[in-house]
Amino acid sequence: MLQAISLAAALTAFWVLLSGYWIPLILCLGAASILACVYIARRMEIIDHEGHPIHISFQGITYFPWLLKEIVLSNIAVAKAILKGGSAIRPQVLQVPASQRDALGQVIYANSITLTPGTVSIGIDEGVITVHALMDETADGLRTGDMNARVCRLEGDPDPRRIAGGGQP
């Protein structure tokens, strides 16, 4: 129920911001379409903790700025490597553990890996993510397991360093 209210609020904000009109007819149409959307989503049972994750929104305040910082840093590293070429680029494949409790956390972890330039997740299987890395620098940054621990904390996992040190399983 809480998720349905949150979805309705988000849709209302979306409608108001994108339309920008305050005519009664338009507002009535907007209210009708929002109610229809929430009703259909409830009938399809797609507003659960995965489809509309409100439980991570408070922890996200610290996680997403950190992710942005990582994106900027690895962007600069990859841009330098592309311009330098030659020995700076050494493509490699590695596997890192994903110790999140449920599928949502692992999806957030894999998408964070892909969003950071220099590392692309190419497969998830049984809590292990296969990663293609462009250079040694970005691969080593992932092997430390820092991002893994942070995504665990984002999900509210009490023991983020279950697998000590990360690295190759």
Binding site: N75, I82, P117, G118, T119, V120, L134
Partner: peptide, 22 residues
């Protein structure tokens, strides 16, 4: 430039994510 220069499709994905993020 990286999309032109890098060697295989996986390496080019890194160059494409440069455009998609920063």
């Amino acid at each position: 430039y990286g999309m032109i220069k890098l060697s295989d499709v996986y390496a080019r994905m890194h160059a494409a994510s440069l455009i998609d993020t920063l």
